[in-house]
C-alpha cells in the first residue's frame, strides 16, 4: 500500500479521497476499522462520497453516516433543550466544539460525532445557569463532596450534569482551560467576541474555535482523539482562513499550541497555511507518531510514547503539589 499501516492511512484518505483507489480489501478493512476507532467513520463516509469503492465498504460507510445523523439529531435536541432552559436568563450561552459545528452548519460538523453538550458562560453567571439547569431536569453526576469541591475550585467547568430523563451530559464551562494550566485564555474576550446564532445561542468566532481546539488537543488530554481534533482544525482553517489567528492566539497565551496544531494539521491533512506557519517544530515527529498510533485492528499502538504523553498532560493541567494532593485524597478514600 506504500504507507506504514498506522493512522496516516486514514489521514491520507481524508485529505486525498482519490487515494483510496489503490486499496485492496485488507487496506479497506484497516482504513474503515481505524476510522471507526478514531470516531472519524462518518467524516470519512462524507469525504468518500462519489468515489468508487467495494459494495461492502459502501455499506459500512452508509451505516456510519446514518449513525452520525442520529447522533446529530440528539445533539441538536440537547442544544434546543438547553436553549429552553437558559434562554430567558439574559446570559450569553456559547456552544463549544461539536455542538457548535453542527448547530452552525460548519464543514467541521459534517460527519462529526458529538458527545456531551459543552457550553461556555460568564463566570459571574455560573450560579444562575446552574440553578436554571437544575430546575429543568438536570442533576449532578457525582454527589461526592470532594470531587465536587475539586471541580469547583480547580477546573474550568462545573461538575458534569446529566439530564434525569434524557440521560445526556452537559458541561458548563466558564473558560476553555483549567485555571491551573499555564496559559490563561481571555474568557471575557471569548464571550464578548462570540457570534450569535439564529436561535439566540452563540458560538465562538472562528479564530477562537481554532484556539480552543488547539488548547483542547495539547493541554486537556493525552492526545487521544487527536486525529479527529486536528481534522476539526483542518476544516475550520479551510472554511475561515487564518488571517487574524496569530494575534488572537497570543492574546489567549495559546500561540505555541496553535502553531503546533496547525503544523500537525498541515503534516497530516495538508492544511493550506501561509508562509512561516508550516515550518516544522522540534518534536513534531514525536507528536505525529503519537497521533497516528493506531493499527489496522483499531488498536492503539506505541504504548511507551503514550505513557509519556499521559504524565505530561497531567503535569500541564495541575502543578505538582496539587496533583499529589489530589491523588492522596483519592487513595485515602479507596483505603477507607
Amino acid at each position: 500500500m506504500g504507507l506504514a499501516l498506522d493512522g496516516r492511512l486514514l489521514a491520507r484518505a481524508l485529505a486525498d479521497p482519490a487515494s483510496v483507489a489503490t486499496l485492496d480489501s485488507a487496506g479497506w478493512q484497516a482504513l474503515l476499522t481505524m476510522a471507526r476507532a478514531e470516531l472519524l467513520s462518518a467524516t470519512l463516509a462524507h469525504r468518500l462520497d462519489g468515489i468508487a469503492k467495494p459494495a461492502a465498504a459502501q455499506r459500512f460507510l452508509d451505516d456510519a453516516k446514518a449513525s452520525c445523523a442520529q447522533g446529530r439529531l440528539v445533539a441538536l435536541w440537547e442544544v434546543e433543550m438547553a436553549r429552553r432552559a437558559l434562554g430567558d436568563l439574559g446570559v450569553p450561552v456559547v456552544l463549544l466544539k461539536g455542538s457548535a459545528f453542527i448547530a452552525a452548519g460548519l464543514a467541521a460538523g459534517q460527519g462529526r460525532f458529538v458527545g456531551d453538550l459543552d457550553i461556555l458562560v460568564p463566570r459571574a453567571e455560573l450560579d444562575r445557569v446552574e440553578a436554571a439547569l437544575l430546575g429543568a431536569g438536570w442533576e449532578w453526576v457525582k454527589p461526592d463532596p470532594y470531587d465536587d469541591a475539586y471541580y469547583r475550585r480547580w477546573m474550568h467547568e462545573l461538575p458534569p450534569l446529566i439530564h434525569r430523563v434524557r440521560d445526556r451530559m452537559i458541561d458548563v464551562h466558564h473558560t476553555i482551560l483549567p485555571p491551573t494550566a499555564r496559559p490563561t485564555p481571555d474568557a471575557d474576550a471569548l464571550i464578548a467576541d462570540s457570534i450569535a446564532l439564529p436561535n439566540g445561542l452563540h458560538m465562538l468566532n472562528s479564530d477562537d474555535m481554532i484556539c480552543h481546539a488547539a488548547a483542547h488537543l495539547f493541554a486537556d488530554g493525552d492526545l487521544s482523539g487527536g486525529m479527529r481534533n486536528l481534522w476539526d482544525i483542518h476544516r475550520l482553517v479551510d472554511d475561515f482562513g487564518i488571517a487574524g489567528l496569530a494575534e488572537r492566539a497570543r492574546r489567549h497565551g495559546l500561540a505555541p499550541a496553535v502553531r503546533r496544531a496547525l503544523r500537525l494539521s498541515h503534516a497530516l491533512y495538508d492544511t493550506q497555511l501561509r508562509d512561516g506557519w508550516a515550518r516544522s517544530g522540534s518534536d513534531d515527529d514525536l507528536y505525529l507518531r503519537r497521533l497516528t498510533a493506531r493499527d489496522g485492528w483499531g488498536r492503539q499502538t506505541r504504548p511507551v510514547t503514550r505513557l509519556g504523553f499521559y504524565v505530561r498532560s497531567h503535569w500541564l493541567r495541575m502543578p505538582p503539589l496539587m496533583l499529589a494532593r489530589h491523588l492522596w485524597t483519592k487513595w485515602r478514600k479507596q483505603a477507607g
Binding site: Q29, T33, A55, A56, A57, F60, W297
Partner: peptide
C-alpha cells in the same frame, strides 16, 4: 467469508 473481504465488525 465477508462480502468483498471487508467485514462490518472487528473483534479481538
Amino acid at each position: 467469508g465477508p462480502q468483498d473481504g471487508i467485514a462490518d465488525f472487528t473483534v479481538r
